[in-house]
Design a protein around this nucleic acid. Structure first.
Lengths: 351, 351
DNA sequence: CTCAAAATGAGTTGCGTACCTCAAAACGCC
DNA sequence: GGCGTTTTGAGGTACGCAACTCATTTTGAG
């Protein structure tokens, strides 16, 4: 009836006895310290395996004494999504200090490869772990690899550098996110045929490019009645996005759907709400965008926006910390837990 | 540039000095032990506040010695959703044993109030925390309250007993889940008018009843062109669900949408796939159901199912453990982290 | 076989807290 | 003021591990 999921609590002493060596030797093996014969190492490792021994986290943490230092390297501009991540880190402060973890925010221009790389290099040696919103660029990749070589744990956050040797990526699969947006626009348009507009920050940004790729994939294969118009590059700025989109809406009377890939949501919404349009008796344009912010929340409730694709910023913040901590402790990572999901948020499941 | 989120590491000794008392007195205050004058208690509490002191989790954990025992009281039947929860708990076994946490599974008939209550009462005193998939019934409520009074931490899992004094509920808002299902069916039907079928396990189950309530709310207010047919009670059984639904589909040629509230998904899908129907040249029925399992995953990929409302079972399992642990340690709960979201899962964002 | 180098054993200290004991001091009551 | 009671102080031990020292044993090269 009662089925236990955990094993008895062994200690290092038990392992030492099992392996027929002293505590000191087990300690050497456990921490990869030199001066142990390969054969002895094997014996100790086997004893650890055989008993599926887990060092007591609390004891290990207590014994090492020094606190751990983590750095979060984030964009300096006023980006609501990044501000949310910071806010959620702030909410964890009690959790962090109870574990003697120091988390520092480092603001930098993440869009300038050399500036970002310099910021990363500056952290070398001082930190146990670094989370970075990374630009995918050779210079940045090199800086990340340098950090890793220096023994610092590195996770990329939101935006990945797959070619680097970062230990982990905390963020969503942006191609799948684009596909999801495509499926939503297609389905919510509801059988009408017509054109679909796409507004992005820049196609040079890896995440935006990937989202557009996924979006087009789905539109082409599953919704032949909808044709996707060339991407508007709004640079994530409200004014520019509004102007570009307004012009496009004026030119094409049969736009039935809209995918806003990045920020600039305010401008996009404004262009859609334009009086001239509604007076022309047009159908509502299906509007799918990204992220749940105060603005998109309002737009969803008002019905201006139909769905938001979201990556939970709180989850990302906590996952980054947990992954860095697990890496530093040498604990396994709970992949399922740290995986960031693509959330579809509509009015009725607003978090 | 670098902004730290945590404070200096104080110890109990520092607090004792600050408050002008001895370590022993601080300890007494911290653990609500008797024998301290109210005035002294206040002085100590103030010193703790003033320095926002946090006991070192690792040290506390190490010092208390004994392992903690948690029990998960779950339905005994072969329910895939519950099996997933168990599986995810199994995946945590390393994490658990590194923290000297013992988690035991207790299978019982959660649909029989007196049996469930007896199972709960039997746990009294032996466990630090209990997570229970609870039936909302006065007898169960009393059993939960008894556990709480005995000092055991109790969280309800998946299904809540709001009137009890359980410390926390780990699960979704089922009314909102039903609303979300309604919005999805309504939107995905795409402007067609017709009838909508609803299949539930039983309207006597609190979560099913709440989902249906939310579903009807949205259908009535937002989709006047769709009329909801009386609920079919399939008792979460495949065969029964299939028969009931097949009969309904035969009677109403204009069914355009279907909401499956609980399990029995296999049967529902079979009824929809019936040859007789497809040969009649009917439109596809929009099918929205719950939970991502091997089956619903396949149905989504095949296009039989259009969307699944999901509560992440892995998240629920981990959240339950974390909440119990935080409660036992007297740590604050990260509400944002432990909140279970209503996930909308379509083919392209299948996890 | 010899001897230096490598491997190992034995032991210590300290991390911050929980939990306990015992003695001393402060207190309130008559 | 004396008494018993309550409150407080002082101190110790234990938890499991990291990190270190130093002595001792084993090993392999010459």
């Amino acid at each position: 009836m009662a089925d236990t999921l955990t094993t008895a609590a062994l200690t290092l002493k038990d392992i030492a006895r099992e392996a027929g060596v002293s505590l000191a030797t087990v300690d050497r093996v456990l921490h990869n310290r030199p001066g142990v014969r390969p054969d002895t190492v094997r014996r100790v490792r086997e004893a650890i395996e055989r008993n599926s021994f887990q060092p007591h986290v609390a004891a290990a943490e207590l014994a090492r004494g020094r606190a751990r230092r983590f750095a979060f390297v984030m964009p300096s501009g006023p980006n609501p999504f990044m501000q949310q991540i910071e806010a959620y880190l702030g909410e964890m402060s009690g959790w962090l200090s109870a574990r003697r973890l120091n988390v520092e925010m480092v603001a930098t221009d993440v869009f300038d490869a050399s500036v970002l790389a310099a910021s990363l290099e500056a952290l070398s040696g001082d930190y146990d772990g670094v989370a970075v919103v990374a630009l995918d660029h050779p210079t940045v990749r090199a800086a990340i690899n340098d950090l890793v070589d220096a023994g610092t744990r590195v996770v990329t956050l939101v935006s990945d550098v797959p070619s680097s040797r970062r230990h982990h990526y905390v963020g969503i699969d942006n191609i799948a996110a684009g596909r999801t947006a495509g499926a939503l626009v297609g389905r919510l348009v509801g059988g009408r045929s017509g054109k679909v507009a796409v507004v992005a920050g820049s196609q040079g940004l890896r995440d935006h490019a990937e989202r557009i790729f996924g979006f087009n994939q789905v539109m082409a294969s599953e919704f032949p009645d909808l044709s996707v118009l060339p991407v508007l590059e709004g640079r994530d700025e409200d004014e520019r996005s509004e102007q570009l989109l307004a012009r496009l809406l004026g030119r094409h009377a049969d736009i039935v759907g809209l995918y806003n890939v990045g920020a600039g949501t305010q401008g996009v919404a404004q262009a859609l709400n334009n009086k001239a349009l509604s007076e022309a008796g047009r159908d509502k344009v299906v509007f799918v965008g990204h992220d749940v912010t105060a603005l998109t929340r309002r737009l969803l409730l008002q019905g201006v926006m139909d769905a938001a694709i979201s990556q939970n910023p709180g989850h990302e913040a906590r996952a980054a910390v947990r992954v860095l901590l697990a890496l530093a402790r040498g604990e396994p990572i709970l992949r399922e837990q740290e995986k960031i999901r693509i959330d579809i948020v509509m009015r009725d499941n607003l978090p």
